[in-house]
Amino acid sequence: MAKKKVTVATASLQSCFGCHISFLDLHEEVLGVFDLIEILHSPIMDVKEVPQVTVGLIEGAVANENNLRVIEEFRKKAKIILAMGSCANLGGVPGMRNFFYQEDVLKRAYVETESTVKGKIPTSNQIPKLLDEVKPVHKVIKVDYYIPGCPPLPEMIKDAIIALVQGKEPEWPTYNLCKECKRYHTLMYIPQREFLTETVFSPMELEQIDTEKCFLEQGVLCMGPATRAGCHTRCINGNIPCRGCFGPTPDALEQGSKMINALSSILPAGTLMHLEDVVGVGYRYSLPVSIYPKVSPPKGGKK
């Protein structure tokens, strides 16, 4: 006697499709999940109408008018909306567009890129209009649950779906990544006010990065302290510092300023100012959910 499967529709807004790939990865890892759910609609299926479903799984940020239309329809058709990945719940990489005015973005993309000859900004109404501000899904419609990560680990998607099927809420850690990190420290836990290192390095500059020692102690900017745990140090295991894709911990309002506050007492602030793109690193995934989520309106108030 087959139990009735939970119906799912998925959507991809402004995104790289990576979350869907992570979702599909489940197939090999945990076949069981697909016994529980049935996908009725997704970008890889040729179904125009969004049917009534229990779970609406949304990937990507809300960046254009078409995205708006899609999520509004999803909200109507799905009982539970699950925002999947950093784009959907923080604004993610596409959210970095909020650092710029829209006309500058269009000009850069269609006119100024080095490979463009005689480019012009398209005016066709076939192309959905960009919104002024890239937003995470929850700033536009009510989101019931979310899965952090760029992309989330396949097993997190699994855990979230199983939790929902069982009528529970998926739960994520509230502490920062350092708690999950196994790297050792020599200086960080010693109450001395001296900076950890004399200068800072980008990971490419170092001939060798100690695979066991905390990145910060090697003068490499790691976003772990200002980033919510849950990924089991996925990048760090590959000897790449954390870039903060899981977003801020729930008790911090944002990552960018918080990381600056912290860095000022651990790495040489002057050198950081010149050598690192502290803003880019701090807001890479979470600008649209930060305190000041986009550029200020230009003088005179016109956009």
Binding site: Y175, Q192, P225, S265
Partner: peptide, 20 residues
């Protein structure tokens, strides 16, 4: 529940009041 033991507070405190 929120603290992950990153040690930033230990480095910041001038009064050696913070430890991990």
């Amino acid at each position: 529940k929120v603290c992950g033991g990153c040690g930033v507070c230990v480095k910041t405190c001038m009064f050696k009041a913070s430890s991990i």
